[in-house]
Amino acid sequence: MEIFVRYVSPLSVLLPIIAGLVYYKYLGTAQKIIFYYVLYSAFSNGTNIYMVRVLHKTSVIPFAVGSIGWVALISSFYAVVFKGNLSRAIYIITFLFSVFAVTNVLYIQTHHQFNTYTVTLNAIIVLVYAMIYVYRQNAVDIDASWGSNSLNWINTGFLLYYSTALMMYITFALITYEIANITFAIHNTALITMYVLFVIGFKKCKA
């Protein structure tokens, strides 16, 4: 399980990166944002792993700053997908979230604690976007099968990962060393699932 948590799941980010590079010329604006999101995640998590395992410094700064980037990129993705008034609201939400994330790391949870408030809010925001996407998909007349739409796969990835992660973030204070590995194993399974769904989403752009 440790190998899975420590090596397999961090390396799984390479799947959507490779797929993104292979299918890059077929990707639309929204899918390209997801590709940058994956690159940003790889960089952010890589920095964190390097700090912990090589420099032996525990820091939550990459997570605190990372959340702002994640929300900004995911918001941009949904702003492109939704268009119109809703995209304007998304940019306002992103700005407010950034203010909250900075306030949280400076005054509320500080950089000595894992920023559970920020990541929880991050997950909630993404889940709201994803549910709005599902609602809108059901409201419009579809002229192709669900599976042929690249955005459906990406949205499903967000729904699966962030719903599972939300559960972990909410209960993070209760997670002790004994169950940390299994908790992260479940979290990372959802993460790999999301990356695999991104790969399918990128591949669907070619069709």
């Binding site: 099968s145 699966l160 719903s163 599972t164 972990m168 908790t183 979290h187």
Partner: peptide
């Protein structure tokens, strides 16, 4: 905690599967 995470994961999976079925 663990049960909740697994349950949420499968609930979302079921929700998506039903949604896909309905749309198709």
């Amino acid at each position: 905690i663990l049960g909740g995470m697994v349950t949420v994961f499968f609930m979302v999976l079921t929700f998506i599967a039903l949604n896909v079925r309905g749309q198709n």
